[in-house]
Amino acid sequence: MIPLSWYLIFSAALFSIGLFGVLARKNVIGMLMGVELMLNAVNINLLAFWSYLYAGVNGLVFVAIVFVAAAAEVAVGLALIISIYRRKRTVVPDEVDGLRG
């Protein structure tokens, strides 16, 4: 029997690692991977609560929607990366500063 707290601590750890990736990576693809880790941590959390506390269907719907959002985010994000790469020959967000004031 695995205690609920294990899952929650695991997801907290995964979330923090992902956060580190988003904050620290130079490379925008690396940032995107960090976001994926964070989303996975959220899903673990949702499913853990579903499994332990609320056996209904609502938690599952949330997870499904997170999947959809993640897929959409990656598709658009990567399309943007390709587009920026094509114009600027870079994938480092700090070098893309067309909007800097």
Partner: peptide
């Protein structure tokens, strides 16, 4: 960034 992440983890 590592500090921030660590604080988030500890807070959670």
């Amino acid at each position: 960034a590592a500090l921030v992440s660590l604080v988030v983890f500890v807070a959670l």
